[in-house]
Design a binder for these strands. Structure first.
Length: 453
RNA sequence: GUGGAUGUAGCUCAGCUGGUUAGAGUACCGGAUUGUGGUUCCGAGGGUCGAGGGUUCGAAUCCCUUCUUCCACCCCA
């Protein structure tokens, strides 16, 4: 430890033990995505700033990691802007690329760029890291993996339902108990319209979003500060204090925004989605939650958020429908909907709840003890056979004390140790030790595969 | 980005209002045990006390700066 080295703030190394577990999550999610016929794409870590900026709101723009242009860029900065410390102008002149902030915007860019090669509806998934210049905390990293699934080029609400099925499947397989919260941007703007404050839409959604955290009083205070009339706030109050179940919430919202055009459309959409849910049984709990207001600017219809029931960590999956995202890049009328699984938070939840299956921590299934050259030859042969059968196994690379070899198996969580020494070679047998039970069995060398399988 | 805490062995932590050579548990390595791990016993190694500067006869301890991690706000996976 002579020299101090570390990864940059908010970024992490992943050792073998962590990678085993992370891959378990990625593989499970991938498996489900494949099950629903999604195909994989990847996009570059960096995008042009012009494709990134302005898509995530003012806050999002601030959190973009910008990449410095190569070469000498100083001649592009005017003395005036330098003297004025005009960092916005200076930034524009010295940086034209940024690290991706999410996978949805690059996907929209991808769709527009490759529109002629894509058959719609296009079902893609994408598992890659994204970067945000956020202040790190627990469950909040500057580099983290998102697992996105999107269907683009279809307006059907069937797609929303399919995403719900996928969410249901993924968390069932991972063993995480979750609640899926649904809402709809159209309902939210219907509310803003119905209380006569359509132009304060953003302020209203942000305030509604905080109700659980800061309570009614402070939310109203904030709304007032944002210029909402007392009358409007009074109209909003039943929504803010709503504790009803999905059915009751539907009735409430119908009574308030049923006669606004967008509001009505939003209610209808949610009715269709919940219709699917009622018709086909799901494992997870789904609720209509009016206080759910995803921040990302581009959502236009349904919005999703998944929270773990047993761990306090923010959302572990979220998404929604976006009607105009490709439009920004010049391809109109291509609506998409998708959700993103936050692999790193899912990892944190599973670690805290100890949900990883035991096999996840096993680096291999069997270890062959090495007694020396002769025995090693036999082990190499048999190990080859096991591997052909898909059984992962290791031959200890050198003759050493059994003590050490067993300790090695132990530290790698290898469940079987196969001992082939002088007497076993003479008899054509192998002694297999089950490391969990400590029980030893001698079998003929042909039976090893069956014994372990 | 604003405000607040934190950092001592690989890991978890003790170390009093500044005072000799900075400790424990655990992990690691060696031995008891050259065909048996996870339990037991013995032994050894490992720290410029996050980094840099300052105050002092003397700093892990006090002050400043910086970095990390964590917490709240903001926002979010």
């Amino acid at each position: 430890m002579a020299q101090q080295v570390s990864t940059p703030k908010g970024t992490r190394d992943f050792g073998p033990a962590e990678m085993n577990r992370r891959n378990y999550i990625f593989n499970t999610i991938k498996d489900v995505f494949h099950n629903y016929g999604f195909s994989q794409i990847e996009t570059p870590a960096m995008e042009s700033l012009s494709t990134l900026l302005g898509k995530y709101g003012a806050e999002g723009d601030k959190l973009l990691f910008k990449i410095l242009n190569s070469g000498n860029f100083t001649d592009k900065i005017s003395k005036e802007s330098l003297d004025a410390q005009n960092y916005i102008e200076i930034t524009n002149n010295i940086s034209e690329k940024g690290l991706r902030y999410d996978l949805t915007v690059p996907f929209a860019r991808f769709v527009v760029q490759h529109r002629n090669d894509i058959v719609f509806p296009f079902k893609r998934y994408q598992i890659q890291p994204v970067w945000r210049a956020d202040k790190p905390q627990k469950g909040r990293y500057r580099e983290f993996y998102q697992c996105d699934v999107d269907i683009i080029g279809s307006k059907s609400l069937f797609n929303e339902y399919e995403l719900i099925q996928i969410i249901d499947d993924v968390f069932a397989r991972l063993g995480i108990s979750v609640t899926l919260k649904l809402n709809n941007r159209k309902i939210l703007s219907g509310i803003a319209e119905a209380i006569g404050e359509a132009d304060k839409f953003v302020a209203i959604t942000v305030a509604i979003d905080k109700i659980d955290k800061i309570g009614l009083e402070k939310v109203e205070e904030e709304l007032r500060a944002n210029g909402l009339s007392d009358n409007a706030i009074a109209k909003l109050r039943p929504i803010l204090t709503n504790k009803g179940n999905t059915e009751e919430t539907f009735k409430l919202i119908e009574s308030i925004i049923g006669n606004t055009e967008t509001g009505k459309a939003g209610i209808e959409e949610m009715n269709v989605i919940f219709g699917y849910i009622r018709e086909h049984k799901l494992g997870i709990n789904v609720e209509l939650d009016l206080s759910l207001a995803r921040g990302l600017n581009y959502y236009t219809g349904a919005i999703f958020e998944v929270k773990a029931n047993d761990v306090e960590i923010g959302s572990i999956c979220g998404g929604g429908r976006y009607d105009n995202l490709t439009g920004i890049f010049g391809l109109k009328d291509v609506s998409g909907v998708g959700v993103s699984f936050g692999a790193d938070r899912i990892y944190d939840v599973m670690t805290q709840l100890e949900l990883f299956p035991k096999q996840t921590d096993e680096y291999s299934t069997a270890l062959f003890v090495n007694f020396g050259q002769n025995e090693e030859k036999a082990c190499i042969e048999i190990a080859g056979k096991l591997r052909k059968e898909g059984i992962s196994c290791v031959v200890f690379p050198e003759k050493s004390k059994l003590d050490k070899q067993f300790k090695f198996a132990n530290s790698q969580n290898i469940p079987y140790v196969i001992i082939i020494g002088e007497s076993e070679i003479a008899n054509g047998t192998a002694t297999i030790k089950n490391m969990a039970t400590g029980k030893q069995t001698t079998v003929s060398q042909n039976e090893i595969v069956n014994f372990i399988k």
